[in-house]
Design a protein around this nucleic acid. Sequence first.
DNA 1: ATGTCGAATAGGATTCGA
Length: 259
Amino acid sequence: MKIATFNINGIKARIGALSDWLDEQTPDVAILQEIKSGDDVFPRDHFEDKGYAVHTHGQKGFNGVAILSRLPLEDVSHGLPGDDTDEQARWIEATVIGERAVRLCGLYLPNGNPAPGPRYDYKLAWMARLEARARELLASEEPALMAGDYNVIPQDEDAARPEAWREDALALPASRAAFRRILNLGFTEAFRAETQGPGHYSFWDYQAGAWNRNDGIRIDHVLMTPQCADLMSRCWIERELRGREKPSDHVPVWVELAA
DNA sequence: ATGTCGAATAGGATTCGA
């Protein structure tokens, strides 16, 4: 099965581009972030008509995640465990039933700027909850992945201009350490399992001609349990989409699984 | 210092978040 994670930056603004992309690329599963819409106004029928099961965990105006799937989904759940007072819509899970069952987690990790400050504290607290959930996924010993906008630049090689991000919440040592702690539990970062070296990005800011200057960063990631990594055949970034009309500032990251 | 965009609110310009 082919699975893509894609921060669409607003479903209202992106419904055309997203629909064209689904028609062309026909992902089995699309894990979406920043739908910026409540569940009640998300155009669910539009995507169901294209043959997708639609599950959203939305929020009016900000954040919001969704899973669209042409394969059956089971056991859908919303919200990252660990803080009942957290009202931001950033986490959704479902099990996709292909030749194998794979647990899918879609996430939109807090940006955390400005750092230091309460927004950065929230980011690090959220990452601690993410680590706890990641431990549970590993303990299940089932194929599982966590895909989405991590808002973390893992290493300097993942930015065209690393010096510009030195003080940013996306690249601060504490952000990188929290990301690395999760990886070190035993997850495989899908893109780096296949491709090494600098120059690979998933986000280019709308400002200052970042796309035209290829001033990008790699912040959209897929982390896999060992049982899932064993199924992966390919991982790639669909860079081309950023150059189209009315693009998101992110592009899809794909994994293909023998499942 | 942002060569910007999306959404909400308000009632077509401003604010927030990224």
